Simulated assay, not measured.
Amino acid sequence: MADANKNPEPYQEWVTKFRHFYREFPIFIDSRYARALRSSDDYECYATNGPQVWKTIGDEILFCCRVQSYEHLSACIVAFLGALDDYGKILDQDGKHMDVKGAGWIAAFPAPNVTVEIAGKDPEQTSSSDQIDEEFELQADSSPNNFDFLGQQIDSGFRAAKNAAPDRCSLSIELAWLLAEAAHSEVFPAKFSYHGRHPLKGVIHDRPYPIIAIDAERSLARREVRKHERAVTREGEVECLHLRNFLESFMKDEGIELPLLSRHGIDPEESILPQTYRDFQAAWTSTNQENQSRRSNEVAAVDAEDGTNELPASVNANLDAAVAQAERPSQ
């Protein structure tokens, strides 16, 4: 018999669940990120550079931020993994068999990937120029939801994310390489797993792509099962140094540039900047100089029409002499 005193909900239960997820999960990220930064007093400089919501796609929330060092990257990934664990435990208590899973990738800007403004998002800040600069990129950092990010590394990241599961956070090979290096340097604490190579549509010409993940299993019982399974199959854990070396060799063989990231407080050397960035820098400088020259010529032309530009000194001297000659009394 139905409870006549109970008010019916206007929406199905899944609607409420998703609204809670969209509202609460970013808060979990912020909390975990603040906790990760407390591991060192020096990390206070990253306090305002945590993961931000970029956009939502269906039942997914995409976060992004500009990564500044290995330590900063570690804090971001640790925060994300911690938020997945915290929110997953809440879902476990609910008993509705819902779960969360995550994936991560990294991309280089302003080349070879690009930042694009989304028309109509913020008309007051929309740029009318196609020539981007650091100020443009900083706007994207502070308000990523007003921008889109395009490029091969973005595409491959989305493709690799399809291999994510509740017990494993899938990684692009570039991000996995950085995290393996960070783990080897004891900056990042995580256990990696390797799942062979599988083609990802449109990535490296559909050749087999290494599937790398971070262990995200939160169930102690299932961790125990996995541990015994490894003993039976004689499968060892992936050693971070071997993983880094394997991915480095793979990327060099495929012509994929290694991502550049420095340790905390150390600026990257100019001599080791990626070739795509140096090519972009040269082209940007040339285009910027042409634009400045064109604008100067346009200003000069307008001034000439308005009569606001000054005549050359030699012309002024000749005019003065002519006027003086005309003013002399005739004899």
Rank of each mutant, 00 (worst) to 15 (best):
G104Q: 01
G88F: 05
K101M: 12
K96L: 15
Y46N: 11
N113Y: 03
F21C: 10
W284H: 15
N316R: 12
V203S: 04
S129K: 08
S271Y: 01
F25K: 03
C64M: 12
M251Y: 00
P110Q: 03
L179T: 02
H20K: 12
F280T: 04
A231I: 07
Q325R: 12
S185E: 12
S128M: 00
Y194T: 00
N318E: 03
A216S: 15
L138R: 13
G102T: 01
W284K: 14
S170F: 02
T285H: 12
G157A: 00
E224K: 04
G82L: 04
T276N: 12
H72K: 09
D30I: 06
H242Y: 05
I204K: 07
R230G: 03
L220D: 06
A79P: 10
E24I: 13
A313R: 09
I266S: 07
D148I: 10
K162F: 07
D148Y: 08
A317E: 09
P199T: 01
R244G: 03
E248H: 08
C76S: 08
S170K: 01
R207D: 05
E181C: 12
I77C: 07
Y22A: 12
N163S: 15
K191L: 07
E237V: 08
G307Q: 08
H184D: 14
Q289E: 14
V15F: 12
G120Y: 05
R66F: 13
D122E: 10
A282Y: 07
E310H: 10
Q139K: 15
